[in-house]
Simulated assay, not measured.
Amino acid sequence: MLKNTFLNLLATCSNDNSFNILLWQEIEEHYTSKKRHYHTLEHLENLLFQLTPIRTKISSWNTILFTLFYHDSIYSSLKSNNEEKSAELAYKRMNQLSVPKEIIDNCYAQILATKSHKNSEDLDTNYFTDADLSILGQDWEVYTQYYKNVRKEYALYPNLVYNSGRKKALQHFLTMENIFKTEYFYQKFEETARKNIQREIELL
């Protein structure tokens, strides 16, 4: 489903099927890296699953899809500029595809927005960053697998270092007035997300 969605997206602006397939292979290679345990194709599938039911609420579905596929294309637990590098790759590829400038610029901004997940004046961006955080509000069994996978991605760090950083990140979410910025995702996930986060903090 992901591959077809990506290739259908590229077909809206490119007739070069060989190049389009190369771009899919690049996406697949990034998200199936052995160093990844959470930022994988499964994460992209979940995003697509969360966003598809509200497609009619989204102003530019194609922008959202480009953002979805590229937002974690560059990822290293040792780096703090993953979003910037991912946005740069998206910008480069979309220019090669002759994607309209407005979509390129909006996609670039949306990818950068996943760094802080702050409220945006752009509703599409809020829908995307909310979907990106939707894992926080899943059932405890799913959430448990999520935080274990995140820990695997930071396996280089000892518990003392990791637990301190993880607690700080989780507590940041709890200090937010709303974790989810859109009414749709707030109603769906806010309450469970706060319970999950608090529970994980207690386990650290």
Rank of each mutant, 00 (worst) to 15 (best):
T67W: 02
M94E: 00
T56E: 13
E121M: 09
E83R: 06
Y154S: 02
A11I: 06
K195P: 04
N46Q: 15
L9P: 05
I197H: 12
H30K: 07
T129Y: 11
Y31M: 00
T67N: 00
A169R: 03
M1I: 03
N106Q: 15
Q25V: 02
S59K: 13
N8I: 05
E153C: 07
S60A: 14
L2Q: 05
Q138I: 02
H37F: 15
W61F: 10
I74H: 09
F185S: 00
E191R: 15
G165Y: 09
M94S: 00
S98L: 12
F173T: 01
A131T: 11
S134N: 06
D16N: 15
V99Y: 01
S120L: 07
W24D: 01
E121N: 14
F180N: 00
T125A: 07
A113S: 12
N17G: 13
N159M: 09
K92G: 03
K188T: 06
E183C: 02
K195L: 12
E183K: 08
S134E: 05
K92T: 14
M1C: 02
S59P: 04
Y91K: 03
K92F: 15
N81V: 14
L65M: 10
E29S: 13
T144E: 10
Q187L: 12
K115W: 07
S164F: 11
A87G: 11
D72V: 08
A193T: 10
D105C: 09
Y147H: 13
F69G: 00
E141Q: 12
N178Y: 13
I104H: 00
Y91S: 02
A90R: 01
K3R: 15
Y70R: 01
I58Q: 02
W140R: 05
R194C: 04
N163K: 13
F189Y: 10
N95Y: 10
E202P: 04
Y162T: 00
K57M: 11
T40S: 10
N196Q: 06
Y70M: 02
N163F: 14
S116I: 10
D72E: 07
I27H: 04
D139G: 04
K101M: 04
S86C: 14
K57Q: 14
L10D: 03
H71Y: 08
T12P: 02
Y31K: 00
N159A: 14
